Amino acid sequence: MSTTSRLLTPDTSAAPAGVPPERRFPAGRAWARVRHVALPSGSLLLFLVLWQLLAASGTWSETLVPPPAKVWDAFVAVSTTHDGVRGYNGTTLVEHLGISLRRIAIGAGLGIALGVVSGLLMGTVGWLRSLFEPWITFLRTLPPLAYFSLLVIWLGINEEPKITLLAVAAFPPVAVSTTTAVAAVSRSLIEAARALGASRWDVVRDVIVPSALPETLTGVRLAVGVAYSSLVAAELVNGLPGIGGMVKDAANYNNTPVVLVGIIAIGVSGLIIDGLLLRLERAVVPWRGRA
Rank of each mutant, 00 (worst) to 15 (best):
V259I: 15
A38K: 11
I153F: 06
V19A: 09
P10K: 14
G267D: 09
V285A: 14
V34S: 12
V116C: 11
S177A: 15
T180Q: 12
F75P: 00
M122H: 09
W127C: 08
R290Y: 12
A167Q: 03
S269E: 10
E215K: 13
T137V: 15
L196P: 01
R279D: 08
E281W: 06
W287C: 09
Q52A: 15
T180E: 11
L93R: 04
W201S: 11
V226N: 02
W154V: 15
A32L: 13
P26R: 00
N254K: 06
G242S: 13
D11F: 05
V259Y: 05
T256A: 13
V259N: 06
A169I: 03
L196K: 02
Y253T: 14
W287K: 07
T91F: 10
V76M: 09
A175L: 03
T12D: 12
G98E: 01
R288N: 11
R33T: 15
T180F: 01
T218L: 00
L280F: 13
A193D: 01
P68K: 08
I136Q: 00
S188Y: 02
L7R: 14
A55E: 08
P144M: 12
W72Y: 09
P286G: 13
P241W: 05
L131V: 05
G242R: 06
P172H: 04
S269D: 10
L277P: 03
D274W: 02
H96N: 03
L213C: 05
I263K: 01
E22S: 13
V237I: 14
L260N: 06
L145P: 00
E95G: 04
V268D: 09
S2W: 01
V203T: 12
I264L: 15
A56C: 03
A113C: 14
R29W: 07
R205W: 11
K162F: 06
T218I: 00
L110D: 03
V258G: 07
R140W: 02
N89T: 04
K162W: 05
A55M: 11
T59C: 05
G107H: 02
G107Q: 03
V182C: 06
E133D: 15
P26N: 00
R6G: 00
M1I: 03
G90H: 04
V168F: 04
A233H: 03
S79V: 09
S230P: 02
F171K: 03
A198K: 00
G245Q: 05
D202T: 04
L121G: 07
K248G: 11
I104L: 15
S13L: 14
L120W: 01
G270M: 08
N89Y: 05
P67W: 12
S177W: 01
A169C: 14
E160V: 08
T141M: 13
Y253A: 14
A175V: 04
T218Q: 11
G262E: 10
